[in-house]
Simulated assay, not measured.
Amino acid sequence: MDVRIPFGSWVESGLDWIEHNLEWLFDLLAAVYVALYDAVVWVVGTPPAIVVITVLALLALAVRGWRFGLGTALGLLFIVGVDQWDNAMETLALVVVAAFLAIVVAVPLGIWAARSDRVSAVIKPVMDFLQTMPAFVYLIPAIGLFGIGVAPGIFATVLFALAPGVRLTELGIRGVDREVVEAGQAFGSTPGRILRQIQLPLAMPSIMAGVNQVIMLSLSMVVIAGMVGAGGLGGDVTKSLSALDTALGFEAGLSVVILAIILDRFTGAFGTKRGLHLFRRLRARGTSDAAATAASSPGASSPTADREAVAA
C-alpha cells in the first residue's frame, strides 16, 4: 500500500493563507527593508570610493593596527580595480541591514532563553530547524511573500543567520559564574541591573562571537539571494553561473571574500577590545554603586560592606 503524506501541500496551503491574510504585514516589512537598505546604500555609495576606502582603512588601523589598515585599503582598491565597487557596496548594505535585524531579534531571544528553561526548550528546536534548513529553501517562501527584489533577500538572510546569535547569547549568559551573580543579588541589585552590569559584560566575548557568525552567514546568504533579484555581488555571481562567465565569477567571488575578511576582522577586534573595555567600565561603576548602597543602608552593615564603602 503506497501512502504519501501530503506535507508539501500543507505547507503550500499555509503559505497561501499567510499571503492572503497577512499581506499588509509583509508589505510593511518590505517597505522597512527597502528603506533601511536604501539608507545604507546612500551612506556607503554616495561618497567617492576613495573617501570610503580611506575611512575604512583608518578604522581598521585604529582597531587592529597598520597591517589590517593596509590590507583593508589594498583589498578595497582591488574591488575598485575590477569594477565591482557599486556591487560591493550594495552587498555591504544588504549584509548590514540583514545582520542588524537578525541581531536585534537574536540577542533578546538569547537573553530570554538564558533566563527561562521553558523558553530555552521551545527556542532550541526552532533554532535547530533554522540552522539545518538548506539555504536555497528560504528563497521559496521569501519569493511568495515578497516577490522579487531586495526585500525577499533580506527576509531570507535574517532567517538563515538568526540561529548562531541566539545560541551564543544564551551560552554566554548561562556561562556567567553564579557566584558573581549571587554577589550582585546580595548587594540588592535588581535582575535588570545584574543583566546590564554583570551578565552582559561577562558574556560579551560569546555574544560578539555570535554577532560575528551572524554577519558571516548574512554575507554568504546575500550572495545566494542574488538569484531572487537582490543584486550586488550575488547578482554577478548568479549571472556568471548562468552564462559560464569565469572571469566575472572570479572577480565577484574574490570581492565577496575580501568583504568577508574585512567584516570578520572588524567584529573580532570589537569583541576583544571594545567588549573588554565596556566590561571594565561597567564593573567599576557597578562596584562603586553597590558600595554606596551598602554604606547608606541603616542597620545593614557588615565587614564586607564596610570594606567596600571604605574602598569607594
Rank of each mutant, 00 (worst) to 15 (best):
F279Q: 14
F270Y: 12
A243K: 03
L202E: 13
S220F: 00
A269S: 14
L254M: 12
L244E: 02
F266D: 14
S218N: 12
L202N: 14
L217S: 12
P205I: 04
V214E: 10
M204L: 15
R193H: 13
L219W: 00
S220R: 00
V211P: 08
F187Y: 11
V223T: 14
K239T: 13
G188W: 00
A243C: 01
T190P: 02
T238F: 02
H277E: 13
V237P: 02
A209C: 09
A209D: 08
K239M: 10
R193M: 10
T267Y: 02
A203W: 01
A186R: 06
L254H: 03
N212E: 12
R193V: 09
L241D: 02
G210F: 04
R196D: 11
A252E: 01
G235A: 08
Q197Y: 09
M216K: 06
A230I: 02
P191E: 06
L233F: 03
P201E: 07
R281C: 04
L195E: 11
R280Q: 14
R280L: 09
L259M: 09
M204T: 15
V256R: 02
P205W: 00
I198N: 07
F187A: 13
V214D: 11
V237Q: 03
H277Y: 11
G188D: 00
G231W: 00
V222D: 04
G249D: 03
L248R: 12
F187D: 11
Q213T: 10
L254T: 14
L202Y: 12
S255N: 08
G249K: 00
F266K: 10
V211S: 09
E251M: 05
I207Q: 06
L233W: 02
K273T: 15
A209G: 15
G275H: 03
L233S: 12
R265I: 07
G235Q: 00
G253Y: 00
L217P: 06
P205Y: 01
I198V: 15
S218A: 15
Q199V: 11
M208V: 14
F250R: 01
L254R: 04
G192Q: 05
S220E: 07
L202Q: 11
D245G: 11
A230N: 05
A209F: 03
P201W: 01
R193S: 15
R274D: 03
V228P: 08
G232W: 00
I215P: 07
A260H: 01
L259K: 05
R281N: 13
F187T: 14
L219E: 10
V222I: 08
I262P: 08
G192K: 04
L254P: 10
A186M: 12
A203V: 11
G226W: 00
L259G: 11
I194P: 07
L244Q: 10
D264I: 02
K273Y: 08
P191W: 05
A225D: 07
R280W: 01
R280Y: 08
L202C: 07
I261L: 12
V223L: 05
L244H: 11
S189G: 06
G268R: 09
I258A: 08
M208D: 08
S206Q: 12
R280H: 14
R265P: 02
G271Y: 01
L254K: 03
